[in-house]
């Protein structure tokens, strides 16, 4: 059951990354932050209370060309989902053959990589689903039916992650491969729908 610790560690790291991305999105009121926002040029910043002079703000202004940040909470959600899908692929590629059951060194390495990649995929999938619910809850709306793209994306993401976790917990039984592949497909379709 050591995989659970590894799983939890990856989820925690992902949440930490999400936290940083969210923190960047939530700027302090009145403070320009560093992503292109700034007080109006007419505003001033007082450097010291006992000084009567004010210093005009000379940093960036809103008139500056817009630069999209690559590190936002929304994007983090996407990175988690994509990484989860890629790791599921790594797990599939490194799955040991039935002939490897004997347990040579190469087979053991493969089994280790396969197991770790699968655990990481499940952990990142869990983090992606959690962040999706937090950030995009308002996009989930049953008014347009379950086949609405956002609804399907959410549903497939949840099912994919559940399938990953079920596959890990059932391994090394033969049925776990089917679950893992189903999870990978669901995650892939879910991502394509939102791409």
């Amino acid at each position: 059951m050591r995989w659970i610790y590894y799983f939890l560690a990856l989820v925690m790291i992902s949440i930490q990354c999400m936290g940083q991305a969210v923190a960047q999105d939530l700027r302090m009121p009145g403070y320009g932050g560093y992503s292109g926002y700034a007080p109006l040029p007419s505003d001033s910043i007082y450097l010291a209370q006992n000084d009567t002079d004010t210093v005009s703000y000379t940093g960036s202004t809103e008139e500056e060309p817009f630069r999209e940040s690559w590190f936002t909470a929304n994007k983090m959600h996407g990175y988690l989902g994509l990484s989860s899908l890629i790791l599921a692929g790594v797990a599939a590629v490194t799955a040991p053959d039935d002939d490897d059951e004997g347990g040579g060194t190469a087979a053991q390495t493969n089994r280790g990589t396969h197991h770790n990649a699968a655990t990481a995929a499940a952990a990142l999938g869990t983090a992606a689903v959690t962040s999706g619910f937090i950030l995009h809850w308002d996009d989930v709306n049953l008014e347009n039916g379950i086949l609405d793209r956002d609804n399907l994306h959410m549903l497939l993401g949840v099912l994919a992650t559940a399938a990953y976790i079920a596959a890990i917990s059932q391994a090394p039984e033969e049925s776990h491969a089917t679950l893992g592949m189903a999870g990978g497909m669901a995650m892939g379709i879910g991502i394509v729908l939102e791409w």
Binding site: Y79, T113, N116, W195
Partner: peptide, 26 residues
């Protein structure tokens, strides 16, 4: 293998960021 995987995950985050530039989004 866990270390390699961790590096791989970091690389994947970076490549995910680049993916949007290479594949048109809808």
């Amino acid at each position: 293998s866990k270390l390699i995987l961790s590096v791989l995950i970091a690389a994947m985050f970076a490549s995910s960021a680049l993916a949007a530039d290479f594949f048109p989004r809808f």
